[in-house]
Design a protein around this nucleic acid. Structure first.
Lengths: 137, 137
DNA sequence: TTACAACCTCCAGTTACTGTAGAAGCAAGC
DNA sequence: GCTTGCTTCTACAGTAACTGGAGGTTGTAA
């Protein structure tokens, strides 16, 4: 049960000190105990909780999604299906993103690589961006 | 040369009225002429410029990148290579994103689909997020 | 004792918009 | 000529998820 300062916690979880305080502000992390002079002190459980948050962020979960995940995790009697739903929906979002990005990449590649190096008058990139029809009629 | 109001321009380019004014604020669109009562009026050239911006945004170019692209487009004697560089770098960013998202998806899928539907105590999703090692030592 | 790093609070800035409040203009119908 | 209702105007606040800085304390090592 080694107590640590905010800098240690931040370093152990690859988080910036300001971000730790931010997570506390928005309620993702509980208010920690303080030393006599007002400095935050943390225990190993805080490392685990913050790691959970950072991993989840790494997977692209939003703060709100993580909040829900944490609630479920905090009350183990709650239904696991809620967590499954969050993860499943997130997975679908990512799949959609991949599909969109891929078709975007293909379209962009078509003219991004066709620059002949002359003056911008005949630039394929700008030309293509200009030649596209207005989004709606 | 039909002059139009901001609502018409917005509709023709699938843009919100507020967004058109925003683009003007940040200098992507020139300050338009006004009617006697102070309303903005636009011509076809504005439709083309705004379409260019919207298409570029659709391709994921940032406002700053679009600003550069517009500058190049506005002065056709400038070197086309600058535009090619912007597009090429953007393409690389997208490729990186696709790679990262794909490996993320695979990792997430591993445990997102393994929910047995019981109580959260044995939830695979939360367990996996908890079991991951802290990001740094 | 004197540096200096780490901590504190509070606040502004980032990106690219979106939404709202409150006032004014404009066209159509009665 | 008046009312209704839509569009426009300016100006500002809010979004997501932090990040960075100012200005001020505290703790520790030389």
């Amino acid at each position: 049960m080694t107590n640590m300062m905010i800098g240690d916690l931040a370093q152990k979880t690859s988080t910036k000190v300001n971000t730790v305080r931010y997570y506390e502000d928005i309620g993702l992390l509980p208010e920690p105990a303080r030393t006599a002079s007002g400095r935050r002190t943390y225990a190993e459980s805080d490392v685990r909780r913050l790691s959970f948050v950072r991993h989840s962020r790494g997977f692209g979960f939003s703060i709100d999604e993580i909040r829900s995940l944490l609630e479920i995790s905090d009350s183990p009697k709650q239904d696991c299906e809620a967590a499954a739903k969050i993860a499943q929906e997130h997975l679908e979002k990512i799949d959609t993103q991949i599909v969109q990005l891929t078709s975007l990449r293909d379209a962009l590649k078509l003219f991004a690589t066709s620059c002949s190096g002359g003056s911008a008058e005949h630039c394929e990139i700008i030309g293509a961006l200009n030649r596209l029809n207005p989004p709606v009629g």
